[in-house]
Design a protein around this nucleic acid. Sequence first.
RNA 1: GGCUCGAUGGCAGAGUGGUUAUGCAGGGGACUGCAAAUCCCCGUACGUCGGUUCAAUUCCGGCUCGAGCCUCCA
Length: 460
Amino acid sequence: MQLHNTATGHKEQFEPQDPQRVTMYVCGPTVYNYAHIGNYRPPVVFDVLARVLRRRYPGVSYARNITDIDDKINAAAAREGVEIGVITSRYAAAFHEDLAALGVAPTDHEPRVTEHIPQIIAMIERLIASGNAYAAEGHVLFQVATYADYGQLSRRDTREMLAGARVEVAPYKKDPGDFVLWKPSTPDLPGWDSPWGRGRPGWHIECSAMAEALLGDTIDIHGGGHDLVFPHHENERAQSTCAHGGQVFARYWLHNGFVTMNSEKMSKSLGNVLLVREMLKHAPGEAIRLGLLTGHYRQPLDWNDDTIPDARRKLDRLYGALRDAGAVAPSDAKAPEAFVAALEDDLNTPAALAELFELARTLNKAESAEEKSRLAAQLRDAGSLLGLLHQSPQAWFALPSAHGDGAPAAAEIEGLIAQRADAKKAKNFKEADRIRDELKARGVLIEDSAQGTRWRYVDA
RNA sequence: GGCUCGAUGGCAGAGUGGUUAUGCAGGGGACUGCAAAUCCCCGUACGUCGGUUCAAUUCCGGCUCGAGCCUCCA
C-alpha cells in the first residue's frame, strides 16, 4: 500500500511496524458546537483508510479523540451558564449521530481529554525533566529551541517564523515560539490540580498523551486536516519525540484537503457553513458520504449545489444495478483487484469509484445467474470498503427526495400504480400516461420492468 | 512577505511523455404501447508564455489565477 507522507512530501510504500497491530491516530473534534461538512471529511476519509487497512492487516488499532476541555468550550458553557459537561455531552452526542448517518464505523478508541489528565501531567513532568519544557507563572511551556527538528514536518524555518512574530509574545515565554503545555485556571474555570497549581492542559499535549496511552510511543499513521500540520502536529511531534527520548512519533503523516463552499473557505464569518445535521434533513447520509469521497482526499473539495444531487444519481445507478440483478444467490466474491489497488494507491477514491461503475455496468450486462451473483457480491464488497451500498436497493429507492415533503405516500403510489395497470390492461394508454404524469409531477418516477412496475422518489 | 498545494471537456473529477478514466448533463441508436431503467455509439479538455524531447496535458522555469497555512480552525 502506498501513502502520501506529509513529513517527506512523497508517496511511500506503507510498512507497519507490526502487521499484527497497525496503529492510527486521527485528531477528532472539539465539541463546542455542531460540526459542518468540512469537519466530517477526516472522519470519513480515515474511516475508509481504516477499512482498507483492516482488510489487509490482521490487527488495526484506530483512535480518534474527542477534545472536551478547551477555551471555546469554556466560553460556550459560560454563555449558557452551565457546566462544560452539558456542552460537551450535547455536542459529542450530535457528533456520533452525524457519524452514524454518514456510515462512519466506530473507532477502536475514542479518548477524551478529561479522562487523561494524569497521563498529560505525567508527560509534561517528563518534558520538564528532560529539559524540553519549563514552568513559569503557573504555565508550563515547551521550549522549541531544545528540539532541533522543530519545523521539519511543516517545512518551516523557525527563525523566519519567529521573525514574522504575528504571535503575541507573553512575558513568561523564553522564546516567542514556545507553546503552552499547561495553563492556570482561575477559580471560575474548570481545572485540575497539578505540580504547577490548578490548571488545564494546552491544546497540543492532549493528543501526544492520549496517543501514547492508547497506541504506544511510535504510531504508524497520524491523520487530520491539512490545517493541523502547523502548529498542532508540529507541536505534537516535538512533544512526543522529546518525551520518548528521540523515538519517532508518527511514521506516516496524512492530511486531508479542505472542503470549500463554491470555492470559498467554509467559515462562520462568510456565513457559508453547512451543518451536516441540517443537510441530513434533505439528503441521505450515504449521498453526503459519497460526496465527500468523490475527490481525492488530499485535494481541496469544492462543495456546491450539485454535489448532493450528483451523488444521489451515482447511487441510483449503483443501487439500480443491484436491484436489477434481482434476488441472487449469495456469493463470497470479493472486491476486484483493480478496485482495491486504487484504494491502496494513496486512497484514490475517484479511481476506485470508476472501477465501481465499471463493475455496475458489467453486472447490468450479466446474463447468467452465477455471473450476476458473483458480480453483485463484488459490488457489495467493494462498496463496503468505501462504506457505501450497505442497504437494500428497495430501501435506497424508497428514500424521500429533497422535495419529499409534498410527495405522496407509498400506499397512495401503489394504489395509483394499480389503477394504471388496469388502464394498461384495457389498452387505455391515455389514462395510464395521465397517472404516470400525475405521479411525476408529484415527485415520483415510475418504471415498468419485467418484474412489474416500480417507483422511486426523485428530485423535482 | 514566507511556506504548501492546485489550474483537465457544460458540471464533478482521476490519470498519463505518444493510444485522452469515471459519473452526471447533452446528441444518436437498440429495447418499450409511450416512457423510465438498461445496453451500444458520439461531441466539447488538459490556464498562459517559454524550455527539454522525435513527441508534453503529462518533465523544467517564468507569469496569471485559485485554495490553504504562518493566529483558534477538519
